[in-house]
Simulated assay, not measured.
Amino acid sequence: MMSAGRHLLPLALLLALQATLCRGACVEVDSDTEAVANEGFKLGCISCKMRGEVPATASVNWYFMASDETEFSHLYSYEDVTGNIIDPRFDERLFWNGSKNTKDLQDGSIFILNVTYNDTGTYRCTFSRVLMYTNYEFETNTNKTIKMNVVPRITRGMASILSEVMMYVSIIGLQLWLVVEMIYCYRKISAAGEEALRESAAEYLAIASESKDNCAGVQAAE
């Protein structure tokens, strides 16, 4: 019984570790900042909960300051699985694009339809999270700021173009190297085969010559 218990304990630990690894991981990725006029655009805002085992609730508030303004205005709020558009400039154009069907929010992203040039400006996302421990609650606040620019069409930076060119150059160079390596290996194998054939032919001739000499010696003895 003791031996079986010792084997079951590591198995239980392994299953617990696998369950932990299988949970969805939260990664804080910066939002895009360049939107195209008359198209949709996602404003990303992710705030990962560091203590995944602790129950929590969170609310998200967005604020907007246009490029010609000096103060932020309340844009949008999301709490208790309910969103509310506060700034009338975004009525019927803004939708929740974050965590679904949960009060323990980690993704507070929103999506804007039919982006206009007036949407250019600074957006601020605020996470208000309450961690619920056994004997007390702990409140945290996280702010993320995004400066969005609206352009007629997507423009690619020089760094992006150069990285793509280098990628294709690397692929072509690798293919050429593989072709050269294949030719080298083929020639080496071919040369080795020819050498083996020559050695076999020489050995065969030597055996035939020896057999002929033996036969001649037998005939002379007779």
Rank of each mutant, 00 (worst) to 15 (best):
N141L: 13
Y63N: 09
L162V: 13
Y184H: 05
Y76D: 04
N97H: 04
E139S: 06
M166H: 04
M158G: 14
G193M: 10
T57K: 06
T126N: 06
M167V: 02
K144A: 01
A66N: 03
H7W: 03
S73V: 08
P10Q: 05
S73Q: 12
F90A: 11
V151Y: 03
T116D: 14
S99R: 00
N135K: 15
S47P: 02
L131H: 07
A66D: 04
I86Y: 08
T126F: 00
D30T: 10
I112E: 04
D87G: 14
T140L: 11
N61R: 13
L94M: 05
T20K: 15
R187L: 13
N118T: 14
T116H: 08
P88F: 09
L105C: 00
M65H: 03
S128K: 10
R156E: 03
L131F: 07
S67A: 07
I46W: 03
F64K: 08
G217P: 02
A159M: 09
R51M: 15
R187G: 06
S163G: 05
K42P: 02
M166C: 05
R6I: 09
G121Y: 01
A12F: 09
N84A: 07
R51H: 14
E69Q: 11
E199M: 06
F138K: 15
P88R: 15
I146Q: 03
E79V: 08
G44H: 04
E139R: 05
T82F: 11
S170E: 01
R23I: 03
T33V: 09
R187V: 07
K100I: 04
Q219D: 10
V130P: 03
G108Q: 00
G5C: 15
N149P: 00
F64N: 02
G157R: 07
P55V: 06
S190W: 06
V81R: 15
K42H: 07
T70Y: 02
T145H: 02
Y117S: 12
T120Q: 15
V179C: 07
V150K: 04
A216T: 12
N61T: 09
P152L: 02
R124Y: 03
G5I: 12
L17P: 02
T126L: 11
A201R: 02
N143Q: 11
Y78S: 07
A16Y: 09
L14G: 10
N84F: 04
G24K: 04
T20G: 10
R198C: 01
D87F: 13
F127C: 01
M158N: 14
N118M: 14
A208W: 04
V180A: 11
E39A: 06
G83T: 08
L131A: 10
N141T: 14
R187D: 09
W96D: 01
V151L: 10
N101D: 08
G5H: 11
L178G: 10
A192W: 09
A16D: 08
Q175A: 13
R153H: 10
E53G: 02
C45H: 12
